[in-house]
Design a protein around this nucleic acid. Structure first.
Length: 457
RNA sequence: GUGGAUGUAGCUCAGUUGGUUAGAGCACCAGAUUGUGGUUCUGGGGGUCGCCGGUUCGAGCCCGGUCUUCCACCCCA
C-alpha cells in the first residue's frame, strides 16, 4: 500500500501528554465544582439518530451537523429508486444518513431524560463532559471537535437554579485562575416583550443583532440597519430607551420596566432577572462581574427564560460559556411540561485563554516523582522490588529500563520533569545507602531506602 | 456558506530580478566525560520546499487548482 501523508481532519487535533495534563486540570476543576453543587455525571453516545438532532438548532445549525452516511450499500439499501430520487439534498439526506455526531450536549440530554424518565427523580441535576462536533469553518478558538462541560437541572422552575449557575461559573473560572470575566444575563421574556410593544414578534433576531452593534456603528448605524430590516420610525422611537440602555443593572431594569410597561411578558422577564440578581446580591460572586445585557440572543430556538453567556475580559476570545432555560425542550420528544435550565463551559476556549495568560500551574506538567537509574543488571534486580515499594507508598516511580548510560537516564528525567532520581550501582547495593539526587538543585545524598521514602511522601 | 492571507528540517524562521549541491537558531544523536543530567566545545543525521498540474533551457520563487492553518463576516463554546 502506498504510504499516505498522515494528517487529521480539518479542525481536529491530537493532544500530547503535556496538553492532556493541562486539559485534565481544566476538566477536573470544573467537574469537582459540578459535584460539589450536587450534579451527577452521565454520558451519551457520540452519535445520535439524525432525527433526534435535526430541527433543534435552526436552519444554520442543521447545516453544521456532521452526518454519518449509512453503512452498507446506501444507494441500494436506503430505498433510493427512480420514484423518490430528487436533486433536493434535504429530501435525500434521511435516505442516506440516519445517524449524526452530536452537536451539543443539551439535546442528547433532553432525549436521555425522556427515555429514562421512569428512573429519574426530579429535580434531576446532571453534568456531562464530552466532545461535540460542528462542521463550522475553523478559526482561533473555534474547532470542529471540542469539549463541552454541561450542567443542567430539569424539573425545577425555581430561579434559585439560575442563581446557582452564576455561582458555579464564578467558582470554577476563579479556581482556574481567571481574574477578569463577565457573566452576562438576559431573559428571553424581555426580548419577547420588546418585540411585543412594537408588534414585531418575528423580528427579534434582527432587533438584537442590530442593538448588539451599538458600540461598533453607533446609534445612527443601528437605526439605519433597523429601517432597512423593515422597522418604522415609530417603532424605533418606542424602543430607543431599550437600545440606549446603560448604567447599573438596577438602572437598566428600571428603564426596561418603563419601556415594557404594556407587555406582561416583558415585565415578567424583568422580575425574573431581578430575582436572580437579588439572590446573587446576598451571596456575591468572588471574581465575576454580573451584567444584564439585552443583546444576548443566543439559542433563540429553544430558550424561554434566562440566557447566560460568559466572556473573558483579559484576551480577545468568543464566549467561554453559555446557557439558559428551556421550558419545553423535552416536549419535542413527547414529554410535555418539563422545564430545564443549564450552562456549558467551553473547555477548549478556556484552555486557549489560560495558555495565553500563562495560568497553568507548573505541577500540571510534572508526572513521575522519582526515577531510579541503574548502572547494570545487578542494579536493576536490586531496584525492581524497590520501585514497587515506592509505588505501594503512593509515590509515582519509574525504573529506567535496559541499562542505558547514566547520562541518558538523567536526560530522560529532565525531559520528563522528574524532580528526583535514585542512582544505584555496586557501591549502593553493598552499603544499602542509595544516591538520592535532587534534580533541581543538583544536591546528592546517600540515604537508605526508608529515608528516601520519608523524603518523598 | 462568503471574502482575504498563509504553508521551506521535529519547532521558530531566512532564502536577492527565476540560475550550481536550499540555510540558521533551537531540538535530536554521538564524542570530549567507561559512576552522574541541566553549562561548554567538536562532529553527525535529518528536506518529495503542503499536494497536483502549468509556464520556462531552468521554479522554493511566476500562474492555476487543491488541502491546511489563520483573519474578517455568519454563527457560536
Amino acid at each position: 500500500m502506498a504510504s499516505v501523508k498522515p494528517s487529521v481532519p480539518k479542525g481536529t487535533r491530537d493532544f500530547s501528554p503535556a496538553e492532556m495534563a493541562k486539559r485534565n486540570y481544566i476538566f477536573d476543576t470544573i467537574k469537582s465544582v459540578f459535584r460539589k453543587y450536587g450534579y451527577q455525571q452521565i454520558e451519551t453516545p457520540a452519535m445520535e439518530k439524525l432525527s433526534t438532532l435535526m430541527g433543534k438548532y435552526g436552519e444554520e445549525g442543521d447545516k453544521l451537523i456532521f452526518k454519518i452516511i449509512n453503512n452498507g450499500d446506501f444507494l441500494a439499501d436506503g430505498g433510493i429508486n427512480e420514484s423518490n430520487i430528487t436533486a433536493d439534498s434535504k429530501k435525500m439526506l434521511p435516505l442516506i444518513a440516519e445517524k449524526a455526531l452530536r452537536y451539543d450536549l443539551t439535546v442528547p440530554f433532553a432525549r436521555y431524560v425522556v427515555m429514562h424518565q421512569n428512573e429519574i427523580s426530579f429535580p434531576f441535576k446532571r453534568f456531562q463532559v464530552q466532545p461535540v462536533w460542528r462542521a463550522d469553518r475553523p478559526q482561533r478558538g473555534r474547532y470542529r471537535e471540542f469539549y463541552q462541560c454541561d450542567a443542567d437541572v430539569v424539573g425545577s422552575n425555581s430561579l434559585l437554579n439560575e442563581a446557582e449557575f452564576v455561582l458555579i461559573y464564578d467558582e470554577a473560572l476563579s479556581k482556574l485562575g481567571l481574574r477578569d470575566f463577565t457573566i452576562k444575563l438576559n431573559n428571553r421574556k424581555i426580548l419577547s416583550g420588546i418585540a411585543e410593544i412594537i408588534d414585531k414578534n418575528d423580528n427579534i433576531v434582527y432587533l438584537t443583532v442590530a442593538i448588539d452593534k451599538l458600540d461598533k456603528i453607533g446609534l445612527d448605524g443601528v437605526i439605519k440597519e433597523l429601517l432597512e430590516k423593515g422597522f418604522t420610525n415609530a417603532d424605533i422611537e418606542k424602543i430607543k430607551p431599550v437600545i440606549l440602555l446603560e448604567g447599573s443593572n438596577e438602572a437598566k431594569l428600571a428603564s426596561l420596566r418603563d419601556a415594557l410597561a404594556k407587555s406582561e411578558t416583558g415585565l415578567k422577564g424583568c422580575d425574573e432577572i431581578e430575582t436572580v440578581l437579588n439572590y446573587i446580591a446576598n451571596c456575591p460572586t468572588k471574581t465575576a462581574k454580573v451584567e444584564l445585557d439585552i443583546t444576548l440572543a443566543r439559542g433563540l430556538n429553544y430558550y424561554t427564560g434566562a440566557i447566560f453567556e460568559v466572556k473573558t475580559n483579559e484576551v480577545a476570545m468568543g464566549s467561554i460559556g453559555g446557557g439558559g432555560r428551556y421550558d419545553d425542550l423535552t416536549g419535542m420528544f413527547g414529554l410535555k411540561g418539563l422545564t430545564g435550565v443549564g450552562i456549558s463551559f467551553g473547555a477548549d476556549r478556556i484552555y486557549d485563554v489560560m495558555e495565553e495568560l500563562n495560568l497553568f500551574p507548573e505541577a500540571t506538567t510534572e508526572s513521575t516523582q522519582v526515577l531510579i537509574c541503574c548502572f547494570d543488571a545487578d542494579g536493576e534486580r536490586y531496584a525492581f522490588p524497590l520501585v514497587q515499594r515506592l509505588r505501594e507508598q503512593d509515590i509515582t516511580a519509574e525504573l529506567y529500563p535496559a541499562g542505558a548510560k547514566i547520562k541518558k537516564q538523567l536526560d530522560y528525567a529532565n525531559s520528563k520533569n522528574i524532580p528526583y532520581t535514585i542512582v544505584i550501582g555496586s557501591d549502593e547495593i553493598q552499603s544499602g545507602l542509595l544516591a538520592f539526587k535532587n534534580m533541581t538543585s543538583g544536591v546528592q545524598e546517600k540515604l537508605t531506602a526508608g529515608e528516601i521514602m520519608k523524603r518523598l511522601k
